[in-house]
């Protein structure tokens, strides 16, 4: 903060607040009087540019925070993302909350060798088919397993 900045801020306050104020400035002034916030009122009078920048940056920060909170809260209900060629069956299973080796078994896909999993692209290359075919196979299998799990859960619940 230099003297020039402070002076220009004070100069702005003399221009902005006084007779013939812009209606937004008058309104803000009245709101702060009504809200019994003399400190804030004085702050806006003395340093209008800095104060506006401070309020705006605070609002932007709050906006991002709300967005982040919505992202976290909305996540559980919107878990699975799209299946991509670079994914492994393990990652797809994690996305959908299923067991990866059960997907392998149901779709007839190769299991990891020495702990090293295959990507869907590698499986497609090994079989000499387009990767879209493997992605479709995995998506169909996952949907079937989810449906079976859902029906199984409902059945068990009804039986209890």
């Amino acid at each position: 903060m230099t003297h020039e900045d402070t002076n220009s801020d004070a100069f702005a306050s003399r221009i902005l607040i006084g007779k013939g104020d812009h209606w937004t400035v008058s309104l803000l002034d009245r709101v702060l009087v009504w809200a019994k916030m003399p400190g804030m009122r004085q702050m806006f009078r003395l340093h209008p540019y800095l104060s506006v920048a401070f309020v705006l940056s605070t609002l932007v920060a709050i906006g991002f925070l709300v967005n982040a909170a919505i992202g976290i809260l909305g996540w559980e209900g919107n878990r699975p993302g799209p299946v991509r060629p670079w994914m492994t069956v393990g990652l797809v299973a994690e996305n959908w909350g299923l067991e990866p080796r059960e997907i392998d078994a149901a779709a007839g896909l190769p299991v990891p060798v020495d702990g090293r999993p295959f990507t869907l692209q590698e499986i497609a290359d090994q079989r000499g088919v387009p990767v879209e075919e493997i992605i479709q196979l995995v998506e169909d299998t996952v949907r079937q397993m989810r449906r079976a799990e859902h029906h199984g859960g409902t059945g068990n619940g009804a039986g209890e």
Binding site: L50, A53, F54, S57, T58, A61, G63, F64, N67, A68
Partner: peptide, 15 residues
Amino acid sequence: SILGFLGAGAVAVGL
């Protein structure tokens, strides 16, 4: 969202 919050928050704290 997180980086935006931290960036704008840092600016707000500085101001």
